[in-house]
């Protein structure tokens, strides 16, 4: 099952500079585990030690923010596209 994942500039150190990588998984969690097996450390930038999506990143499945879908348990299908962006915020 091939899913394209677009990686933002600040995380491309984990992908050898690639803008997009391919992965597989039936859920976002499974996809991130799969990606981390080839791009070690990437998962840790997206998921906290408690297993929640890091608030410093936005993850979109088919352009929908996963916070409004099923979070890390969002289901994925072949051909879906995932985009990761740094969240921008301040005080």
């Amino acid at each position: 099952m091939a899913i394209e994942v677009r990686i933002p500039t600040i995380l491309r150190s984990y992908t050898g500079g690639d803008k997009a990588v391919q992965g597989s998984g039936a859920t976002l969690t499974a996809l991130l585990d799969d990606l981390d097996s080839r791009h070690s450390g990437l998962r840790g930038r997206l998921v906290t030690e408690d297993g929640a999506l890091h608030r410093f990143v936005n993850v979109y499945v088919n352009d929908e923010d996963v916070r409004f879908l099923g979070g890390l348990e969002t289901k994925l299908a072949d051909g879906d596209n995932v985009t990761v962006l740094p969240a921008v915020a301040g005080g």
Binding site: T83, L85, A87, G91
Partner: peptide
């Protein structure tokens, strides 16, 4: 956040702009 003490980019709008 529509807040006097903080801001967060709207995630959908940020994707479009990025």
């Amino acid at each position: 956040e529509r807040s006097p003490t903080g801001f967060v980019f709207d995630s959908a709008e940020w994707l479009t702009v990025y």
